[in-house]
């Protein structure tokens, strides 16, 4: 700003600098237009999706009035409710398992030197890089050949009977470990090692040091990793679809099979609900990040 006002006061430079200024502001304008255009392109469909979940008609293209009917219908659709519970169950269990394994993997990677560490490092992050479909097919082949996994884990939650194939949980753990490990490792790398030395100096043995100092210090990273894993598990379609066998639906898989029979605003309602849920999780992770402690933590940073 100040440089502009100065150039205005210097007449000999005015012509050249005015053109430079116009060029600069044009550049800034088109850059922001481009930026907003990008956001518009990405988020407009989502906004439309949410709007049409309140549409008082079977159409998802023509607006004919406001209603909550589709949400009501969604709640009373036992198939949807069952698949929602399946999704939550798979997400919770796979998150817990992958948080434990992922955290241990992060500690091993960050703190120890061992034979084949480089290879382990690459393998650990592979699920992030390779396409879902490749991972899905690999897992399917694995379960098929080994013959394990397709039998269901039967549980009863709040009167609803679930039968969740182990294969789905194992698959979700398989890809979630990587994400947890990345987030926890980033946190661990920032951590001051002398804090652990200080604990040992104050008579805490190795275990006490871990529980009293290392773990609490890692906690923001672990929570961030857990939320990420939970969201990814909840949203996953491809891998679940391939590894679930017949008759098992998580919410995204259920939505997919509903679409095959025709798209109604009920699908919009389900999708909107998932959207709200995901946003809430991201919000929580941001809050955790803020409320954690001194250093900024990589929460959901992918």
């Amino acid at each position: 700003m100040s440089s502009e006002s100065i150039t205005q006061q210097v007449p000999s430079m005015s012509r050249r600098s005015r053109w430079a200024r116009v060029k600069k502001s044009m550049g800034e304008f088109s850059l922001s237009l481009y930026g907003w255009g990008g956001y518009f392109f990405l988020y407009l469909p989502i906004v439309i999706l949410v709007i049409f979940s309140f549409n008082d008609s079977r159409s998802t293209a023509q607006w004919s009035g406001f209603t909550f009917d589709w949400y009501g219908e969604m709640i009373h659709d036992s198939q949807i409710i069952l698949s929602l519970w399946n999704s939550l169950f798979v997400a919770v269990i796979s998150t817990i398992i992958s948080v434990v394994i992922g955290t241990l993997a992060a500690m091993a990677m960050e703190r120890h030197v061992f034979r084949g560490k480089l290879l382990m490092d690459a393998v650990l992050y592979l699920p992030i890089i390779i396409p879902d479909i490749a991972m899905a097919i690999m897992l399917l082949i694995f379960f098929d050949i080994s013959g394990i996994g397709f039998e269901p884990w039967k549980v009863s939650l709040f009167g609803i009977r679930l039968a969740v194939p182990y294969s789905v949980i194992i698959s979700h753990v398989a890809f979630n470990i990587s994400f947890v490990a990345i987030v926890v490792r980033a946190r661990l790398a920032q951590m001051d090692r002398t804090l652990e030395e200080a604990a040992q100096d104050l008579y805490a043995d190795t275990w006490q040091t871990f529980w009293k100092v290392t773990l609490p210090m890692m906690m923001p990273g672990i929570m961030g990793g857990a939320l990420l894993a939970f969201t990814l598990s909840l949203d996953d379609f491809v891998i679940t679809f391939f590894t679930s066998g017949a008759g098992f639906n998580t919410l995204p898989v259920r939505v997919f099979s509903m679409i095959k029979k025709g798209v109604t605003p009920k699908i919009n309602a389900v999708s909107s609900l998932m959207l709200v849920f995901s946003l809430a999780l991201i919000g929580i992770s941001l809050l955790l990040r803020k409320g954690g402690d001194e250093e900024p933590t990589i929460g959901i940073g992918l």
Partner: peptide, 18 residues
């Protein structure tokens, strides 16, 4: 190990538990 020695340390950057 450090936790069995009758000494205590004041660290350069204090190493207080945040």
């Amino acid at each position: 190990p450090p936790y069995q020695r009758p000494v205590n340390t004041v660290f350069q950057h204090y190493a207080l538990f945040p």
